[in-house]
Amino acid sequence: MKTLADIVNTVEVSTITLTVNGRQYELEIGGHPDEVDPAHTLAHTLRETLGLTGTKVGCDGGACGACTVLMDGKPILSCMMLTVEADGKSITTIEGLGDPLNGKLDPIQQAFVDNTAFQCGFCTPGIILTAKALLDENPSPTESEVKEALAGNHCRCISHYHVVEAVMAAARNRR
């Protein structure tokens, strides 16, 4: 049987690499403000360490979907993902949609603008990312597929109806 020290040497990592919105970040594991503690969630790292506050933390308990980001293209809850366990992954946050230099929006963002598919807007980044993952996988969803895909995104203002219209419109516009 190996000793704990042997194991620690082989499987405890000291740096991780995250690709966020196409940009690569090398992050040290540690306790300083610009480092990643093993207990940090991906949501925490994105917001507090990388300053990408477009990702919102609502419940911090895996139920509201406000913190949804795309990990290798799939929507996941960044509040329920340890940053150290996202090592090597490619993350897309709301800041990664559209082009900030020329102001061009992703078609889904544009459809949300056109349909006023939000009220308070706190849940909107998570909703847009979930919708993007859906349309990337299924470019022509039915309304009920849109609703099922968004079943894990809380919205309390009830912007759901406009969101569904916006996602359907974005699907049409992307075709």
């Binding site: 049987m1 190996k2 000793t3 704990l4 194991i7 620690v8 082989t10 499987v11 405890e12 990592v13 594991i29 306790g31 503690d37 093993p38 207990a39 940090h40 969630t41 340890l82 150290v84 366990e85 090592d87």
Partner: peptide
């Protein structure tokens, strides 16, 4: 969250070894 040590197990055997340790 309060901090903890973190390991990435590469095999089942490794995971079990760390648990045991």
């Amino acid at each position: 969250m309060k901090s903890f040590k973190h390991f990435n197990a590469r095999t089942v055997a490794e995971a079990v070894q760390i648990l045991k340790a």
